[in-house]
Design a protein around this nucleic acid. Sequence first.
DNA 1: CTTGACATAGAACGTATGTTCCGGTAGAAT
DNA 2: ATTCTACCGGAACATACGTTCTATGTCAAG
Lengths: 219, 219
Amino acid sequence: MAKRALTDRQRRMLDYIQDFSVSSGYPPSIRQIGKAVGISSTSVVNYNLNRLVDEGYLDRDQNVSRGIRLTDKLGKAAESLGDIIRVPLVGRIFASEPVPMPGTDSPIYGADEAIEITRDLVTSEEDLFALEVKGDSMIDAMVSEGDIVVMKREPTWSNGDMVAVWLKDREETTLKYIYREGNQVRLQPANPNMEAIMIENPEIIEVQGKVMLVLRQLA
Amino acid sequence: MAKRALTDRQRRMLDYIQDFSVSSGYPPSIRQIGKAVGISSTSVVNYNLNRLVDEGYLDRDQNVSRGIRLTDKLGKAAESLGDIIRVPLVGRIFASEPVPMPGTDSPIYGADEAIEITRDLVTSEEDLFALEVKGDSMIDAMVSEGDIVVMKREPTWSNGDMVAVWLKDREETTLKYIYREGNQVRLQPANPNMEAIMIENPEIIEVQGKVMLVLRQLA
DNA sequence: CTTGACATAGAACGTATGTTCCGGTAGAAT
DNA sequence: ATTCTACCGGAACATACGTTCTATGTCAAG
């Protein structure tokens, strides 16, 4: 997968490093970091520290105690922190399965992975979660393999919303524009070349979330 | 003695700690400090570090590598650094001896001790040195034991200057206002109750410096 | 199912680093 | 001269800390 935001652990590590540094005047040791974020093994802290170096969030000096230096990348992120929101990446979306939901017992994805988006990309910040699209079954929604859909868990929907719907009879998840038409429901693909699906009995569909954003990270 | 500025070593240590900290993102180790300021023994660095803590220039955390934190005292000093000048304290002034001079082979005092004064206390910053007054022999100059005189090494003097003069015949140093009066020189004590000394032959006096400032630190 | 990439935990290791002790010097005070 | 204080140097010591190795588990890819 292209580029992913930090894991929750790594973010907490950065937060702790920053907090400790400003309050103590010097950076924390590996063991201090581990204790703070709940990692028992120094090697794991070391591992994630190196990941953070790879991501450009900090610099390290080898064989130097507390040889950690925060880069300005974090500073910039902190600056505009008010403009960035984190959306948990809770799983993947298949055509053949209902969408995983956060907080359920469904096989949680990384459990601590997330993507970061600027606030102005979405109209709401509540109840958002993200899914990675697997397979080409969503092509009728103009969504391709590897895309990330940011969804909002919401019980209600309005005409024209793009939603993830679970078609009980077909055992299939699709992304469609949804319209109420009398007693029926019309599921309209984003791809104008595709035919709409008319649902005569609304009982057989289950709206699992409203699509707020589709991300396609290339290169 | 009341309160003294830092030794040259300690000042270099502070400078190095600050430089290293800002450029590295974390404080230096004891051995790094020693190497930087030319101290071979870690215990000596440790010793001076604790002195600096006593003086309030930094905080330390025990048993923590690089557990050094600069206090804002240095920051403030650095802020107003343009307003502070350091005057080397080169020795003591006796009535019975010529004044020691900086740069001579005279028994240099601490060699690295100095006092700090604000710039506005003196009219000139060049060729200044400081002496501690020993004994009560300068009472006719209203200068008492323990005072510090800041002097300017200058070959010339003007009427009304207070100067340190070495009276060759008496083998005595005194602080007096000096006036040229015809062929003679009048040395006028600051204490109005004291009699002036008339010098008929200027050859027997030697002006060793012009007094710029007298400091009396109490409590 | 098997493989490989990724993440974690635990333990052992080497060393960077702070601490302590002991001896020595120089100047000031007595 | 003696004592005292401040400062320095060297070495030994204890440990805080970064590094490395092995084992384990998970999950996506083949």
